[in-house]
């Protein structure tokens, strides 16, 4: 079971690479913001899988809850800012 979780973690890390490609490649700013949001969702899932892998789940779930909320505030702030600034 733990090796299964290990491979899940490896696959998630590879998927984060796909989002990173979009962040680096993205023509407009909004692709980058989109990629970052995707990466943060993946990071939340990665936190919890790491928690189950290392048998210390309740600590990691609190971290991922906090991270989800922080990410919401950050993403909304960026979206709000970019709305007025307009396309560069």
């Amino acid at each position: 079971m733990t090796t299964f979780f290990f491979y899940v973690m490896v696959l998630l890390a590879i998927l984060i690479g796909a989002y990173l490609y979009r962040v680096l490649q993205g023509p407009t700013i909004f692709d980058r913001v989109l990629g970052l949001n995707g990466i943060s969702t993946k990071a939340i899932i990665l936190f919890i899988v790491i928690g189950t892998y290392s048998e210390r789940v309740n600590m990691f779930i609190d971290i991922s809850t906090g991270y989800a909320l922080i990410n919401l505030v950050g993403a909304l702030a960026v979206a709000k800012y970019l709305e007025q600034k307009g396309l560069p």
Binding site: T28, F30, L34, N37, A75, A79, L82, E83, L87
Partner: peptide, 12 residues
């Protein structure tokens, strides 16, 4: 989050 970013994209 997705709605906020895409509305900002559409508006700008």
């Amino acid at each position: 989050i997705a709605h906020a970013t895409i509305r900002a994209a559409f508006r700008s």
